[in-house]
Design a protein around this nucleic acid. Structure first.
Lengths: 204, 204
DNA sequence: ATAAATCTCGAGTGGACACTCGAAATTCGA
DNA sequence: TCGAATTTCGAGTGTCCACTCGAGATTTAT
């Protein structure tokens, strides 16, 4: 057999403006998927928004689901949720409230998250694995922070950190949906503050 | 002008098996929309499931969005949420826990609700009005029940009925999403029970 | 400079989509 | 029974979809 490293591998890698181009594509895809969902949004929509042909788009992201995964990973890098372990324990609460306030300034990102998350539970959805893992790790991170608070006696007695972690995420996600439909009636940060007032030990 | 009631209006109304036929169509559409969403599901999918031609389906529901609205109204009639004012005030809590338990037996209905609710926030979605109204009335119904509990001194002091109503719905919706993705890790009824334990006045 | 690699895109492919049309089959009131 | 109304459906309309192909334009290492 003459198979060997006879091919010198003359690959040159992406050209200079390539990474920037990918960024604008992901940004456009983000908007399209937020406005129409993954199934409802089309590659043509994305290409039109970037101002390039649909064929060129496919040069950067060979399939639609590749593009979706790029958008989801990009979302992670913005919100960075579940990543920062919130160094001082007390700051856990403040950090979540701060993030909730910040979220009000980026409705598009919230819409993307809400729409794709629910869509991901449907048949053969390429985003399912992402959301499955996100929920699992986020529950773990929050549970650890709540356990830490409990050890300091700062959690109300009877509150289970694991279940409270899931409930906290659920409350947050759910209130985002209501906020998207009726932003003037819903105060996301207040809902989270209320919840922390309930699960934290009362000031003596 | 010779326009008058010269047309005797010989309409005969739907035939005998027509209403039953509509029921099976709505049931099939329910399954399709749950599994693939509104945009992702097709009329052909629904017709195949019923065993009729797509054209015949359109005889009963002239447009896809007509079919969606029929499915949403049918869902209301099953779960009947927001309708029963839960006559005795105390039963409010028990009724929600009971409903949460019952929901575990109808994952398809939960999936439908979760998927369509989030999808409804997207552009030009025919279900948006339905969910907008649902949230508004449900918040009202829950807030009234919680206010009633507060007047009996059964609500923990400091809990605002309006905000707690929105949070309760948010928690419920959010925990359903997590449950759909990881049914073995999530206990929906427990999450709601936990929340009521927090907002109800502690037993003295 | 030049050649190979990357980037771009026009032109398609095959299929799915919601919806229309006209006509046959069926039901039912009289 | 008979005729009109309802129900069924095959065939088609125009549109959009993700994705392919091949070739020209541009960039970059040498």
């Amino acid at each position: 057999m003459a198979t060997g490293e006879s091919v010198p591998d003359r690959r040159r890698g992406p050209y200079a403006k390539s990474t920037e181009r990918r960024r604008t594509i992901v940004a456009a895809a983000h908007a399209v998927f937020a406005a129409r969902g993954y199934r409802g949004g089309s590659l043509q929509d994305v290409a039109d928004r970037v101002g390039m042909s649909q064929t060129s788009l496919l040069h950067y992201f060979p399939t639609k689901s590749d593009l979706l995964l790029a958008v989801l990973n990009w979302r992670d890098s913005i919100t960075g949720d579940g990543t920062a372990p919130s160094d001082p324990d007390e700051a856990f609460v403040d950090e979540i409230i701060r993030q909730a306030h910040f979220n009000e300034s980026i409705p598009g990102v919230i819409e993307l998250y809400t729409v794709l998350c629910a869509e991901s539970v449907t048949e053969d959805h390429p985003g399912r694995k992402y959301f499955l893992e996100r929920f699992a790790t986020l529950r773990g991170v929050y549970a650890r922070s709540l356990t830490s608070l409990a050890e300091q006696g700062k959690l109300r007695s009877g509150v289970d950190p694991e279940r409270a972690a899931a409930s906290l995420i659920a409350l947050w996600d759910g209130i985002q949906t209501q906020w998207l439909l009726a932003p003037d009636s819903i105060d996301m940060a207040a809902a989270l503050r209320d919840y922390f007032d309930l699960i934290l030990a009362p000031r003596p």
